[in-house]
Design a binder for these strands. Structure first.
Lengths: 164, 164
DNA sequence: GGGAAATATCTGACAAGTCAGATACTGTTG
DNA sequence: CAACAGTATCTGACTTGTCAGATATTTCCC
């Protein structure tokens, strides 16, 4: 994973080990999202992005989460979250409640339907993760790969904490 | 990376190891794309997606690549590629030539400006990859992580080869 | 306390992809 | 060799996200 030659042609850029590695990360993530997201859509009628938001809300529990927090968890603009939550609310998956401690804010939380939907979607999702994400990797690598993802994910989160 | 309990609440789904691992893959990929893509945009005025297409074309060399091949490399619909290449052509980065062997097809290839741009963007990109993607990982893990990405990327590619 | 700066959310205008159907050529087959 | 299924690309209608600016509160100081 080292390549110190200076890049001076398109062909060199295209073969560069680091560029390739990063491209593979993006490619694998995109394709897996495409496939697993489609499965969730077919099974539960919600997009992968909505599913991710349901998960985030499931993690945050009763009180609910402000819109901005959702924007930061997923990499979304606050305007994007407004519209996404609009649609999720229209679909009956979540509800917006007033934030008692801050009248500007709204707390978003799961409805009963949202809770059921995330459970149902998750069962499908886990099977697909096993099949398409875990199984291709050599068993001896899985533990370390998961750890590295944790590290990377954590580092990347620090990278865009607030200054959105 | 194992978790065999059946999922029956949103909170359980949200804590599930496999779901978390997959979420971290997506989260890390999204955030890194956001940050590194922005850098390319600022430096060269092209989106990360355009950059990826330039790389693909750099890899394919002289003859050029049909639109459909680009669609398969990136996970894009053919309609999406038409429009993306429209914009890239308008920006002078690529050109469409007739395919001598198939009058339906068009071969897309880099222009001189496209070539220069991909080289310039790649230099920035490599530095950012080192900083944000390589450095956070323990040095002893990097080799294996790169290999696992290769495996995953390859497996995911097989998953959506043609049946788009 | 009073007002400036910061923060949370929403909205109009826009950008960029998807999807399904149109169009134009290719290749196969009876 | 004509018909037909298959393939490559393009297009109109639409979905969904971004960006920048508006609005309502809150926080921080003087």
């Amino acid at each position: 994973m080292v390549d110190e030659a200076p890049i001076s042609t398109a062909a060199e850029a295209a073969q560069h080990e680091l560029i390739l590695a990063f491209g593979r990360l993006q490619g694998a993530a995109n394709r897996l999202e495409h496939v697993l997201g489609r499965a969730i859509e077919v099974e539960c009628g919600i997009s992968h992005l909505m599913y991710e938001v349901l998960l985030i809300l499931g993690r945050s529990g009763e009180p609910g989460l402000p819109m901005g927090a959702i924007a930061r968890e997923q990499v979304l603009s606050t305007g994007g979250v407004t519209r996404l939550v609009d649609r999720m609310e229209a679909a009956g998956l979540v509800e917006r409640a007033a934030d008692p401690g801050d009248r500007r804010g709204r707390l978003v939380r799961l409805t009963e339907l949202g809770e059921q939907t995330v459970v149902r979607a998750s069962r499908v999702h886990v099977e697909n993760i096993k099949r398409y994400f875990v199984e291709p990797l050599p068993a001896a690598h899985r533990e370390q790969f998961a750890e590295d993802l944790r590290i990377l994910s954590h580092a990347a989160k620090e990278l865009l904490p607030r200054p959105s």
